[in-house]
């Protein structure tokens, strides 16, 4: 199942990328209400963005990013029809990536 939704739109030379990732982003601070034990952290640690295979942005995330994270950024030098690729890795070693065409 694809975990990433991407919208990328070029306007006046600037491409705005909006992305939603479905991930529970367990912060590691919450406690299980029944056992009182901390629920182990399980969150995305790195997000990478590529335009036509070239990295434009990378992010390091901690557990303080909300569940089902939203991220938006802007970059120059892309045209409609170009490819934007978003990929993520979490602290359990899982990951996913998705591509979208710039509109």
């Amino acid at each position: 199942m694809a975990s990433i939704k991407i919208r990328a739109k070029a306007q006046d030379g600037v491409t705005t990328v909006k992305t939603l990732i479905s991930h529970k982003m367990e912060s590691g601070q919450r406690k299980d209400s029944k056992t009182g034990e901390k629920i182990p952290a399980h969150h995305i640690t790195e997000v990478m963005a590529e335009h036509n295979g070239k990295q434009v942005m990378s992010a390091n995330w901690g557990g303080a990013i909300s569940q089902n994270p939203y991220l938006s950024f802007k970059f120059k030098g892309a045209a409609a029809g170009d490819t934007v690729k978003i990929s993520w890795v979490d602290n359990m070693g899982k990951g996913d990536s998705a591509e979208a065409q710039i509109k």
Binding site: V14, S27, Q29, H51, K54, Q55, V56, M57, S58, A59, N60, W61, G62, G63, A64, I65, S66, P69, Y70, L71, S72, F73, K74, F75, K76, G77
Partner: peptide
Amino acid sequence: VAGNPGPLTSTYTLSSACEPFISTRVRM
């Protein structure tokens, strides 16, 4: 977020092509 147990929520490395703009949602 100064009041969080770990204040750093996220950090972003921008290439020269990037506009200085980041939007996201954080926990407080």
